[in-house]
Write a protein that binds this DNA or RNA. Sequence first.
DNA 1: ACAAAAAGGTTATGATATAACATCTCTAAA
DNA 2: TTTAGAGATGTTATATCATAACCTTTTTGT
Lengths: 166, 166
Amino acid sequence: MMPKNFLPITSTQVFIKHDHRACARSAMEAAHQLCAARGLRLTPVREKVLELLLESHQALGAYAILERLAQAGFRSQPPVAYRALDFLVEHGLVHRIEKLNAFVACNQPQAGHAPTFMICNNCHQVAETPGKQASGTLGKRARAIGFHIQSTVVEAEGLCAACQAA
Amino acid sequence: MMPKNFLPITSTQVFIKHDHRACARSAMEAAHQLCAARGLRLTPVREKVLELLLESHQALGAYAILERLAQAGFRSQPPVAYRALDFLVEHGLVHRIEKLNAFVACNQPQAGHAPTFMICNNCHQVAETPGKQASGTLGKRARAIGFHIQSTVVEAEGLCAACQAA
DNA sequence: ACAAAAAGGTTATGATATAACATCTCTAAA
DNA sequence: TTTAGAGATGTTATATCATAACCTTTTTGT
């Protein structure tokens, strides 16, 4: 039987040591499948941006992405990065971290999730924990005042376990 | 007896019809008291910025504040607004809304609270609901992975009760 | 009165994001 | 298979948000 307060912290939990390459590879595969299934075009720029984010396992700003794109032979005007990011965010392959004005790859792309993020102020990694829309405290508060939630931002800054130890 | 899931939605709940002037006046008074108690200086610019935010009952961007400051006879270089805002945010009199790159007055200035915000996409008012640090789902998730939370951002966008009706 | 600290004034620039419009490239229907 | 339309990309320019750096003024503690 599962423990009472089971939280599905998965292999996608960034702070936990794991094989980044394998993790990135499987996320990229998931992205391809998702796009195929929905008839979306994961064009070269879009794929490259996703790849960069998956590799880094950190939040990257649009201009940091732009630099890396340029190094990889893509054009380097801001709209190039922003358009790719818009696409990826719209389809849930990437999330925007408001607190950082930056972006992270989603490691479990799927519809209708409302993830929460833990941002380590020391190692600058960002962990995503899965969440359902309107669950928990926020949903409760919204219902209490008749507020209809369309989207949520839930982010915590602090120190991950490893960085506390060090 | 109080209902089981009692949530302290107070008179400070912006979406609910109330006397803005009285509300702003009392919040301003609370700010003065708080500053007196802590030996902080609520200088003219700082007070004016807080007043502007209390009046508007909406989130205002730094440059919107700057315009209004200029109209009121203050200098209008960006640092003027940002410094005042820094002070007010630091001491909990104003909160930053990350999703909007904007600021709202806190209607219940007090130490150690970690409020959550509901942003109406129609009337653009922002409601603050009180919250305690590390309570609820986010705290649970953090503990599950040994993450030490230093600060949180919890914001929901959607439609307030009044705007749903209309 | 004076030194130190805090606040404010000013210039310049950095960082983030989008508008607008031209061109290219796929896809699907004629 | 041509061609219209949608979607994607290229490019220029500019809007929006935020801070660095340095100097002067005001306040506070001694």
